[in-house]
Nucleic acid binder design. Structure first.
Lengths: 200, 200
DNA sequence: TCTTTATGGGACTCTCATGTCCCATTATGA
DNA sequence: TCATAATGGGACATGAGAGTCCCATAAAGA
């Protein structure tokens, strides 16, 4: 897969699955929020969260899979947007990594929705799904290793997955009120950099 | 609601965790394996995995929630067993933590099943569910902090959740063949202790 | 061996979510 | 104002899974 990841929504009129109407965005946002929390939530809940009738929801997205796919696309788009803003290639790897974490936390619902369900078959056949944010983050890790700030023995893919896992954990705790939302990114960053061990 | 779990309709078997009829244990094991991978898998899949007819499954566990609850109980029992063997209180906190990680990885399916689904309402009212392995692990973290080997600024609850998250991540990667199973515990331990930063 | 028990398959009902269709109501805009 | 489009609710059909029941068969025990 070329790293021309699908994040970047089409300008207009997508042929299938994503009917781009008036505020399809509101529906997609609602879908991300609801489905991030429970991927098997009935569409009636999504419609309710989007403050639209179930009929209207079906009018925009004929079937569930279409909605899922469109939400996934939108998620990649949102994540791509904040990743853009995070300027991954600029500055030190350490700084970049911190910005990346903050970016992910910022669009938490989208992240959880898009990468939260490990056993998801719907996206397996998506053109750009297989491997989200394919190289960018592993490249960042490698850069950090080259700079001597990241553990040179760590598998970059493992490191990236750890980053995601920590972001998830933080968002989850925040969602339960076990931790203020603004504390998530710092906690993730600190743990990512040092683990829970002491600085020797 | 009390533990009105319908399992165990005969008198011999005895206490919790152990098992009810002939090989209810096999069914529970199958349930854990299947449901850890997909919590919404139909019961027919569980029955198939257990090499039992759907009728028989329903004979042991009248309804889905009952099966879920029993599997959860069994999971706690299994985890408790390996935690016992891990002798959490003995030795240095660092060594104990390593044994704990290994123990969790060892009973991976049970762990994933029991703690994998964040949005699960079935167990909320379970007698002992609210807070699994309640104090033991947070105590371990505190002990490590007292010994000066764990970050004194880390919230013990956060540290424990990180431990779980890393175990999950490792098991997931192993399940996909992205990492040999025997490498999971070491990777988790290393990351837990040092993060992905370099030892300064 | 004969008896008792457990098993598994099939058939059935029930519930819930999905997807479709229709229509009255409301918003939008010319 | 009137005309058009969008909305939301209700009614309906469909399909999947859960849960129940029954019965022929296989296993276990006396």
């Amino acid at each position: 897969m070329e790293h021309a990841v699908g994040w970047r929504h089409d300008e207009h009129g997508e042929p299938e699955g994503g009917g781009a109407g008036p505020d399809a965005g509101a529906i997609l946002r609602a879908a991300a929020t609801v489905l991030a929390h429970d991927r098997n939530a009935p569409l009636s809940e999504v419609a309710e969260a989007a403050r639209v009738g179930r009929s209207t929801l079906h009018r925009y997205f004929p079937d569930r899979d279409g909605l899922l796919a469109a939400t996934y696309e939108e998620a990649l788009s949102e994540i791509g947007r904040v990743m853009e803003e995070a300027r991954v290639e600029e500055g030190s790897a350490l700084e970049a990594m911190r910005r990346v974490v903050a970016a992910h936390v910022e669009v938490g619902d989208w992240v959880v929705f898009a990468f939260g369900d490990t056993a998801n078959e719907v996206f397996d056949d998506a053109p750009d799904a297989a491997d989200p944010e394919p190289e960018i983050l592993t490249d960042l890790v490698r850069r950090g290793q080259a700079e001597g700030v990241f553990d040179p023995d760590a598998d970059p893919a493992w490191a990236v997955q750890v980053l995601w896992a920590l972001v998830f954990t933080g968002l989850e705790r925040a969602g339960r009120g076990q931790m203020p939302r603004h504390a998530v990114a710092p906690a993730v960053v600190r743990t990512l950099e040092r683990g829970i061990g002491v600085r020797t």
